[in-house]
Amino acid sequence: MLLIDCPYCGKRPEVEFHCGGEAHIARPETPTAVGDADWGSFLYYRTNPKGVQAERWLHGHGCGRWFNALRDTVSDAFVATYEMGKPRPDRDAATASTPSNA
């Protein structure tokens, strides 16, 4: 079970959270101006990286806030968590946190 560092509450077990998938996929400003292919891409296509991915989490059984996280999908270690709206931190898996050094 993951240990997730909610930017608002601190470290909590995964069961308190809901994962919302890849982050930084902005909803188009004017969806009606988007073509079918691009709209399909927005709805369904994901990076699915083997490595660090930015993803959305909801601390649903906690503060109720959505936030973003960088997590290595190979080790499942979190590199960072950060508030919605903040840019993706410029960090890689080498800085992944473990319970002892985070």
């Binding site: 809901h18 959305r56 806030r65 959505w66 919605m84």
Partner: peptide, 13 residues
Amino acid sequence: MRHMEDYLQTEWP
């Protein structure tokens, strides 16, 4: 509830 919070917090803050 989650759907609403999602849009509210992440798309239309």
